[in-house]
Design a protein around this nucleic acid. Structure first.
Length: 574
RNA sequence: CGGUUCGUAGCUCAGUUGGCAGAGCACGUGACUCUUAAUCUCGGGGUCGUGGGUUCGAAUCCCACCGAACCGACCA
């Protein structure tokens, strides 16, 4: 019994059921394949035909509800595609005198949460419910932990589990009891597949590049650091894969793309997880105008793949992904929302403008960051419908080609939707001398105190020195795109396992530690139940009260243990 | 990192002015051969997040800590 002490009453009952099943010769975790012929979806889709033909099916899944009557019962079986009602009649599954399988196994030893196989006939009940009439019932996996019960009637859901702690920490439970969550992740996969098929149809190559990088390049962000023992060097988890993909363009591929996990050691909130998925694509001989068209086409395809239309709902907003999207330069956007023309303004003038607009700044900010702050605080939130913001200041885009008409700017665009950045793209910088100078500018910013200025990657510069074709690249946040496409407001809802602080279990001493104090093993669970989880916690406890409590507990719960003597207890608390 | 809110049975949640710890579902028992949030009988189940404090007495009031959500800060 001591072994079971940590378990709840219901868990103990289920573990006992395991033993009962084994005694009856039923393996609760059989090894053999179960010959599934249909999913619940297959049956419901073709129900009229199958029920008329009294089709025989084998289905498998989890019991999620039971309605037991005397010698006939119904339960609901849920599989990947949905759920269907199953009818079990005692004399059908127990044709002989021995009714154990129904009376004991099905009614007593099976529970909600167990995974079973059902062989039976498709039929409709008198109440009109699509059902399967069981001829053979097989236990496939016993569940010994009770599942949260969610009930439903007429589309209304009762007692749904919304506690984010359980939903994210125990995603498997979330997926079992909240079917719309499974749907979200199916759509996430569809988003990625649609993009991949689009790229492959154009002949672009899917590639893989290093996650562990000696120089974390391609973006402005704080990296995670780790250490390689054999090489005895620090390595960084990638913050972007841009520099590697461009090396491959140098190598002669016309188009390369990668769906990549990136890692950034920064804050977490509703739109940021420390690891997240980005798709980056680079295509030779193109520029950022071409890339805008390409991006529009891609997103329109994704929206149609998920919703069958370009119009989607996101929170209280309706967003239309129909081409073409609005295009506006950053300067014009700032003019539109603040009335101020920043063209040709010096760093000091920009500082003054920020002060007037009540945009927060600090001394480490250069010209580019100041402009970005104005845009971020005054403009971003207005970009609800898909909008390309073009032509960023050169200072904040060190990997981007100078604008063909204005050397202060770069040929860069970002796509904003619902006030959030979704894509980032350039006409890629391929002038190796300019690139080295821009890296050196970053070094100066870093010396000025900007802790996310880029490192200099000399090998990347060397690659450019061999010559990279003109090229356009684009990166898109897959998690955010999925949030839009599945109408989820939180990144945690589109990641199976969002990062969370680890659970902490209260520390408990084992029985041996108590034994060293002369405390018999059988009293350990009782002491722990009373809150004395460690031997140390017993120190200086009033021996008299503890003695009374222990004897009282023994009596009240009819444990039949031999009570310790007062002297014993005194020695325990010394 | 700061502000707000929350943490009570396996799950969803009540809990009044500080006065015996509650309900529904789930679980156990018994009845029931077409039920569907099945129904009906009886029953068991609690470290009230953790630790301290105030009090004759704390789920409730105070402090600290742990965890979560939201809003900011930082950050793309």
């Amino acid at each position: 019994m001591a072994f079971y002490d940590e378990l709840s009453e219901q868990e103990i009952i289920r573990r006992n059921s395991l033993e009962e099943l084994r005694k009856l010769g039923i393996n609760p975790y059989p090894a053999a394949e179960y010959p599934v012929t249909h999913t619940t979806g297959d049956i419901l889709k073709d129900f009229e035909n199958m029920s008329t033909k009294r089709a025989e099916v084998c289905i498998a899944g989890r019991i999620i509800a039971r309605r037991i009557m005397g010698s006939a019962s119904f339960f609901e079986l849920q599989d990947e595609k949905g759920k269907i009602q199953v009818y079990v009649k005692r004399d059908d599954i127990c044709p002989t005198e021995d009714k154990t399988l129904y009376n004991t196994v099905f009614k007593k030893l099976l529970d909600i949460g167990d995974i079973v196989g059902v062989k039976g006939i498709v039929f409709r009940t008198q109440m009109g419910e699509e059902s399967v009439h069981t001829t053979e019932l097989t236990l496939l996996s016993k569940s010994i932990r009770p599942l949260p019960i969610v009930k439903e009637k007429d589309g209304k859901v009762f007692d749904a589990v919304t506690d984010s702690e359980m939903r994210y920490r125990q995603r498997y439970v979330d997926l079992i009891i909240n079917p719309q969550v499974r749907e979200t992740f199916i759509n996430r996969s569809k988003v990625i597949n649609t993009m991949r098929e689009f790229f492959n149809s154009k002949g672009y190559l899917e590639v893989e590049t290093p996650i562990l990088q000696p120089i974390p390049g391609g973006a402005a962000a704080r990296p995670f650091v780790t250490h390689h023992n054999a090489l005895d060097i620090p390595l960084y988890l990638r913050i972007a894969n841009e520099l590697y993909l461009k090396r491959l363009i140098v190598g002669g591929y016309n188009g390369v793309y990668e769906f990549a996990k990136d890692f950034r050691n920064e804050g977490m909130d509703r739109t940021h997880n420390p690891e997240f998925t980005v798709m980056e694509i680079y295509i030779a001989y193109k520029d950022y105008f071409w890339m805008m068209n390409f991006t529009e086409e891609m997103l329109e395809k994704v929206a149609i793949a998920i919703h069958g239309t370009t119009k989607i709902t996101f929170g209280d907003k309706e967003i239309d992904f129909k081409r073409p999207f609005r295009r506006i330069t950053m300067t014009d956007a700032i003019k539109e929302y603040t009335g101020i023309d920043i063209t040709g303004k010096s760093e000091n003038e920009l500082r003054t403008i920020c002060k007037e607009l009540e945009v927060e700044v600090d001394d480490t900010m250069g010209k580019g960051k100041l402009i970005d702050s104005i845009f971020g605080e005054k403009c971003e939130e207005h970009m609800i419908q898909p909008t390309f913001i073009m032509d960023y200041p050169i200072e904040m885009s060190p990997l981007c080609k100078r604008h063909r008409n204005n050397p202060e700017l770069t040929e860069r665009f970002e796509l904003f939707i619902a006030g959030k950045e979704l894509c980032n793209a350039y006409s890629e910088l391929n002038d190796p001398i300019d690139q080295l100078e821009r890296f050196q500018e970053q070094l100066k910013l870093s010396e000025k105190g900007d802790d996310e200025a880029m490192f200099i990657d000399m090998d990347f510069v060397r690659a450019l020195e061999y010559g990279m074709p003109t090229c356009s690249g684009m990166g898109i946040g897959i998690d955010r795109l999925t949030m839009f496409m599945t109408n989820n407001q939180s990144i945690q809802d589109v990641l199976f396992f969002p990062q969370m602080r680890p659970e902490k279990k209260p520390q408990k001493d084992n029985a041996e530690a108590y034994a060293q104090k002369g405390i018999p093993t059988e009293w350990v669970p009782i002491l722990q139940k009373m809150g004395f989880n460690t031997v140390a916690s017993l120190a200086n406890v009033a021996a008299g009260k503890l003695f009374n409590d222990l004897c009282g507990y023994n009596k009240k719960n009819k444990l039949g243990l031999k009570n310790p003597s007062m002297d014993d207890v005194k020695s325990w608390v010394e």
